[in-house]
Design a protein around this nucleic acid. Structure first.
Length: 440
RNA sequence: CGGGGAGUGGCGCAGCCAGGUAGCGCAUCUGCUUUGGGAGCAGAGGGUCGGAGGUUCGAAUCCUCUCUCCCCGACCA
C-alpha cells in the first residue's frame, strides 16, 4: 500500500477527550474516530488490526473443533422473556421497537439465540458435544463508556457456547476453551493470566477471567510473578486428550481480581518478592452455567438411557475490539504504538526519504515490489514530506520494521533497517536488507 | 445515576468576568527557498461561536431552556 493513496489521517495534536494512552494513540494513528459516546468507526489502519486479531481468535477456535456461525445483532424480546432475562438485564440492554411495534433489542450477548437454535435442531446425546461460536458486534448501553475502545458501548466480541450431555463432558469443553484462550493470547503477544472469577448463583470453580496486567486496567488484580514465565501449550496440543494437567499448571499459583482477592491467602501462598499487585484488563472470560438456559428454554436431549435431560452449557467470550486497545496498553512507548508481529497492520514500513529523487524512487519501487513478492505487507511512505515527519508517523503507527531509503545512504549503496521495538538500526545493502526482512 | 468540566475553522486553544460584529498555533492551498528526526519566508482559503428562545441599538460574551462530549464515583458474565 502506498501511503499517498492510503486513508491514514494521523494527528499531531492529542485530541482533548482522550485520557488513556491506547485511546490517544488510536486516535492519533488514524485507527478510529468517535461517532458518539462509546461508539467508534474503524478507519483502514485500525480495521486491519481488528481483522488480524479476529483471524487469530478464529484459527484458535477452529483448532478446538468449535464451529463458526453468525447470529444477528437484532434479537426478538420474546426469547429473552423466555429465559427470564428481559426484565433482569436492565438499562444496559438497548431496546428497540420495530414498525409493527414488536419489541426487539440489540444483542448484548447471545445465550438465548443460540439456545433457540440448539433446541430446534438437536435431539440426541449422539449429536454432542457441540461448540458454536460467532464473532459479532454487541451493544451494551453502559452508563459511562470510557477509555476509548476499551469500554465502548458497541464492541466486537467472539462468543461461543458449548453443549454437553453431563458435567464431566462440560468440564472438558471448558478446559478446551481454557487452553485455546492461553494460545490465542500468547499469539497476540500478550501475557494473559487466568484468574478465578465469580460464578454468581451457579457456583463452582468453572469460571475464569483472562487478565493482562496494565496500569490502566479497570480492576485491581493480585497474582504470583511465576505466571509471567509460564508458556502456553504449543499448536500441537491434542484437544481430545485430557487437558486437566495444563489447567492444573495454569491455576497452580495465586491469581485473583479484587472481588475474589483474599489478602491472607495471598500473603501465605506467595513470597513477598513474587507478589504482584497491580491493575489488569479483562480480555476474556470463560464460564460454565450448567442448565440455566436449557432448563428455562427447554433445550433437552435424549440420553443413552432413554431419559431426556437439559443440556449442559458454557459460554466463552473474547473482547476482540477491546484487545486492540489492550495490546497498545501493553506495547507502546513515548513515540507511539509497537505492534507485535502477529497483529501489525503492515509488516514493514518502507520510507522514501526523498520522493521525486530518481535514485530513491527507483530503489524504493524495486524494494517494494520484491518485499511484496516475498509475501510481506508493506506500507510505502512515498509522500514528499520531510524526513522528520515521516519518521514520526512511522514510529507512531508502530509497524515492527522500518526500511529507510535516502539519497545519502544510496550513494554508498546502503539502506537502513530499523526495528521499532528496540530502535536498533542497521545499515545494509539493499539485497541484505530485503533478505533480513523476508527471512531468506 | 450523584459530583465536576467542556462545546469558538479539520485539530489544539484564546476571547466571555467588565456586550461593539471573531483571533492564535498547527493543518490545508499557491509561490520561492529548504530537505536524514514534525523547516523558513510571502500570500490565500476556511468559522450559523452546539441548538432554541430572551434581554439589548447591538450577544461568542448577559439570562432561560435544551442537546452533546469528557473526567471522578457508583454500576459492569
Amino acid at each position: 500500500m502506498r501511503m499517498s493513496q492510503f486513508f491514514l489521517p494521523v494527528l499531531k495534536d492529542t485530541p482533548a477527550e482522550a485520557q488513556i494512552v491506547s485511546h490517544r494513540l488510536m486516535l492519533r494513528a488514524g485507527m478510529i474516530r468517535q461517532s458518539s459516546a462509546g461508539i467508534y468507526s474503524w478507519l483502514p489502519l485500525g480495521f486491519r488490526v481488528l481483522k488480524k486479531i479476529e483471524q487469530i481468535v478464529r484459527e484458535e477456535q477452529d483448532a478446538t473443533g468449535a464451529q463458526e456461525l453468525l447470529m444477528p445483532t437484532i434479537q426478538p424480546a420474546d426469547l429473552w422473556r423466555e429465559s427470564g432475562r428481559y426484565d433482569d438485564y436492565g438499562l444496559e440492554m438497548l431496546r428497540i421497537t420495530d414498525r409493527h411495534e414488536r419489541d426487539m433489542l440489540f444483542g448484548p450477548t447471545n445465550e438465548e439465540v443460540i439456545t433457540d437454535i440448539f433446541r430446534g435442531s438437536i435431539r440426541s446425546y449422539r449429536q454432542l458435544p457441540l461448540n458454536l461460536y460467532h464473532i459479532q458486534w454487541k451493544f451494551r448501553d453502559e452508563v459511562r463508556p470510557r477509555f476509548g475502545i476499551m469500554r465502548g458501548r458497541e464492541f466486537l466480541m467472539k462468543d461461543n457456547y458449548s453443549f454437553d450431555l453431563d458435567t464431566e463432558a462440560a468440564r472438558h469443553s471448558y478446559n478446551k476453551m481454557f487452553v485455546a484462550y492461553l494460545r490465542t493470547f500468547e499469539r497476540l503477544g500478550l501475557k494473559a493470566i487466568p484468574m478465578l472469577a465469580d460464578t454468581g448463583p451457579i457456583g463452582g470453580d468453572m469460571s475464569h477471567e483472562f487478565i493482562i496486567l496494565a496500569d490502566t486496567g479497570e480492576s485491581e488484580v493480585y497474582c504470583h510473578a511465576d505466571y509471567l514465565d509460564f508458556t502456553a501449550p504449543d499448536a500441537g496440543v491434542d484437544y481430545e486428550s485430557d487437558l486437566s494437567p495444563i489447567i492444573a499448571h495454569w491455576t497452580s499459583r495465586y491469581a485473583a481480581t479484587d472481588e475474589k482477592h483474599d489478602a491472607v491467602q495471598f500473603e501465605n501462598e506467595v513470597p513477598e518478592e513474587r507478589r504482584i499487585a497491580t491493575r489488569g484488563i479483562e480480555v476474556g472470560h470463560i464460564f460454565n452455567f450448567g442448565s440455566k438456559y436449557s432448563k428455562a428454554m427447554g433445550a433437552n436431549v435424549m440420553g443413552a438411557d432413554g431419559t431426556e435431560v437439559p443440556v449442559e452449557m458454557g459460554s466463552y467470550g473474547i473482547g476482540v475490539s477491546r484487545l486492540v486497545g489492550a495490546i497498545i496498553e501493553a506495547s507502546h512507548d513515548d513515540d507511539g504504538i509497537i505492534w507485535p508481529d502477529s497483529v501489525a497492520p503492515f509488516d514493514v514500513g518502507l520510507i522514501n526519504l526523498k520522493a521525486g529523487d530518481e535514485a530513491c524512487d527507483s530503489a524504493v519501487n524495486d524494494i517494494y515490489a520484491k518485499l511484496g513478492e516475498a509475501g510481506l505487507d508493506v506500507l510505502l511512505d512515498d509522500s514528499d514530506g520531510r524526513a522528520g515527519g515521516k519518521f514520526a508517523t512511522m514510529d507512531l503507527i508502530g509497524l515492527p520494521w522500518q526500511l529507510i531509503v535516502g539519497p545519502r545512504g544510496l550513494k554508498s549503496g546502503v539502506v537502513e533497517v530499523k526495528e521499532r521495538r528496540t530502535g536498533e538500526r542497521q545499515e545494509l545493502s539493499i539485497e541484505a536488507a530485503i533478505a533480513s526482512l523476508t527471512g531468506s
